[in-house]
Structures are given as C-alpha cells and as structure tokens.
Amino acid sequence: MAEAGLRGEGAPEQGGAGAPVGVPSVIRAADEAALYRVARRRAREEVQRTQRVDVRYSVTEKQSILAEAQRLGLAAAHLVGAIVMAYLHGHFEIPGQRTSFDDLIDELAALRAEIAPIGKNVNQIAFKLNSGGHPHPVDSAVLAQAERLLALARTAAEAIDTASFQAAVAKQAA
C-alpha cells in the first residue's frame, strides 16, 4: 500500500538513492540509509499501480533481494522498483556499466604503474654510484642525470595522481 505522503524521516526532500544491494564491496551506512529513504518515499497515486515488468533472477539473486527487502522492512517488488527508478533518475550506475571516466581512471592507473619502476631504477643506480669505492670520471654526470630523471618521474607520478583524483571526483559528480 502506498503511503499517504512523502516521509521525510529527517532527510532532505530530494534525497538520493544509494547503491543497489550487493554492488559495492563496502556498503556505507549513508548509502544504506539513502536507499531506505528512497524506497520508502513514494507519493500516493490516485490510481493503483497496475503495470508490471517481469524480471528473472537466479535463485541466489532472488534470495539476496528478499533478504535485503526483509531487512529494510519493504516488499521485494518495492525495493527493486525503487532501485530501478533511482537508476533511471541518474543516482547510480549499473554494475559493469563502464563510463569514459572508468576508462580514463584505468589508463591513468596503468600509466602510474609504468612510471613507478623508473623512479625505483634511478634510485638503484644512484645507490650503486654512491656506495663507495673509487668513483669513475662519469659518475658525477650520471648522478646528475639520475637526479633530473628522478625529479621528472616524481613530477609525472604526482601529475598522474592528481589527474586520477580529479577523474574520480568528476565521475562522482556526473
């Protein structure tokens, strides 16, 4: 039965939807509360809802949906409907649905993984040259180049980290 009006329960009127059950590896309390608010906040309609959409689930998926709905004190159909409507209103992504932000973040992570060994190798070269013994005439020139290369690698890694963070923030805002 639909409720007589919108239930605020201390939440702002336009509260967002949380992630669907089982999608994130960590479910935050705020996400769970938002999902509960969205699922419970449905205005009464003049006419009873009669349109159906049939969906098939595996036994495990159905059990998960029923368990989560019971835990939240909702009908399973109501929970699934709220999650679908939240997705349609742009509140979250479907698992496996890649965006350009995901591709960018993956590319930046791969680039960062390629930059890190450069810094490690330069440090090993510098350690070897500074380990004592009799220096060769070119050692000081090699050390100077190693310092410059290490500074460039560090700057590149920091720039990649900054770009990755900005991409992640932009993805959340989108």
Rank of each mutant, 00 (worst) to 15 (best):
A34C: 11
S164G: 12
P20R: 04
H134F: 09
F101M: 06
Q14E: 14
D102E: 10
D139Y: 03
I160M: 05
G133F: 06
E93H: 13
G8T: 05
S131A: 15
V59G: 08
F101G: 04
D31I: 00
L111A: 15
S140T: 12
T162Q: 15
A110Q: 14
A75V: 07
A67W: 02
A144D: 07
F92E: 03
G8I: 00
Q63N: 09
E45P: 06
A17P: 07
V80F: 02
A146R: 01
T155G: 10
R56G: 03
L152N: 04
L150Y: 03
H89D: 15
A43D: 13
H134D: 13
T99F: 08
R44N: 14
L88I: 12
G81N: 14
T50H: 08
K62A: 02
A29F: 02
V38R: 00
L88P: 08
N130R: 14
N121F: 11
A2S: 14
A157R: 10
A69T: 03
G133I: 09
M85T: 12
A34T: 04
Q51T: 14
Q124K: 12
A113F: 01
A11W: 01
V47Y: 08
V59W: 00
Q63C: 04
I125S: 00
I83H: 04
F101H: 15
D103H: 12
V122F: 00
P12M: 06
L66T: 09
R148L: 08
P117A: 08
F101P: 01
L66D: 14
E3L: 07
E68P: 02
L6G: 07
Y36L: 06
H134G: 09
I65S: 01
H134Q: 15
H78N: 11
Q97G: 14
V122M: 01
Q48F: 13
P20M: 06
V23P: 01
H134W: 07
K128L: 13
L6T: 04
A109V: 15
A173P: 08
A141V: 01
K128Q: 13
E13N: 09
E114T: 12
P24W: 02
S25I: 09
E46F: 09
P24A: 06
F92I: 09
A4E: 14
R44Q: 14
G10Q: 00
R71E: 01
A144K: 07
A75F: 02
E114Y: 06
L111P: 06
T50Q: 11
M85W: 05
A167S: 10
F92W: 12
R40M: 08
V169H: 10
Q51S: 11
Q51A: 12
I65H: 05
N121Y: 11
R42H: 09
V142E: 03
L111W: 08
D102V: 07
E61D: 13
F92S: 05
Q48I: 13
A167F: 01
V80K: 03
E61T: 07
I125Q: 03
R37D: 04
A167K: 03
F165I: 13
A4R: 15
L152P: 02
V38M: 02
Y57L: 15
G119M: 03
Y87V: 12
G133E: 09
A2V: 13
N123Y: 00
N130I: 08
L35F: 05
H136S: 10
A110W: 05
L108S: 06
A39Q: 02
E158R: 15
A173M: 14
L129W: 02
V23E: 00
D102F: 06
L143Y: 04
R40L: 10
A11L: 03
A29M: 05
D161Y: 02
M1A: 13
L150P: 01
